[in-house]
């Protein structure tokens, strides 16, 4: 049980990192200010998760 949970947790953080990278990529590529604000907001919870703050 502990081993399975550890494996799922590692996968979860990898997924988080992937989505953060994807959002950051879109943030860099977008030409619209409004979208950049949106991507900026979306990155916050992923950062907090990756840093294990929440």
């Amino acid at each position: 049980m502990i081993a399975i949970n550890t494996a799922v947790t590692v996968l979860y953080y990898l997924i988080c990192a992937f989505f953060l990278a994807a959002i950051a990529y879109n943030f860099v590529k977008t030409r619209k200010v409004q979208e950049s604000v949106l991507y900026g907001l979306m990155m916050i919870p992923f950062i907090l998760r990756l840093l294990r703050l929440k």
Binding site: V28, V33, S36, V37, G40, M43, I44
Partner: peptide, 23 residues
């Protein structure tokens, strides 16, 4: 646009820092 994005990043970083500090 570049300056706007830098501003967004700064605000976002400040929000994340405050939330992160509180947690």
């Amino acid at each position: 646009l570049k300056w706007a994005k830098i501003a967004v990043l700064l605000v976002m970083a400040a929000c994340a820092a405050v939330a992160g500090f509180l947690f």
